[in-house]
Simulated scan of single mutants.
Amino acid sequence: MEKHSNAKEIVNYSFLVVFANDDTIDEGELHMLERLALEDGVVDEEEKKALRGIFSRVDRDRLSDSVRTEIDEFCAKYDI
């Protein structure tokens, strides 16, 4: 069975939702990104690259403390 990466879906979601309205990530948007990345239980290299790009574009000072913490924990857990 061939593995399917959701990297394209992650990038598309980020442009259609995350960056379309306010250039930051709220809790609901972060949870959707996490769900897409973990749909098959593994965050593959393409998904990691997509998430790194998204997270690097966000002004961390504009994130809520809880979202900033959750991003840091998610990145640490999945080596992003």
Rank of each mutant, 00 (worst) to 15 (best):
E2W: 06
K3P: 08
H4A: 01
S5W: 06
S5L: 09
N6M: 04
N6P: 12
I10L: 03
V11W: 07
N12T: 15
N12E: 11
Y13W: 06
S14T: 13
F15W: 15
F15A: 08
L16H: 11
V17P: 11
F19V: 08
A20L: 05
D22L: 03
D23W: 07
E27F: 01
L30A: 06
L30Q: 01
H31V: 12
H31F: 14
H31E: 08
E34G: 00
E34V: 14
R35M: 06
L38K: 02
E39V: 05
G41R: 04
D44E: 01
E45V: 15
E46N: 14
E47F: 07
K48L: 06
K49I: 14
A50W: 01
A50M: 01
R52S: 09
R52W: 15
F55D: 05
R57F: 14
R57H: 08
D61S: 02
D61L: 08
D65H: 08
D65R: 13
S66Y: 05
S66H: 15
V67Q: 12
T69F: 09
I71P: 07
D72P: 00
F74V: 11
C75A: 14
A76V: 08
A76N: 01
K77P: 05
K77N: 00
K77T: 02
Y78C: 08
I80W: 14
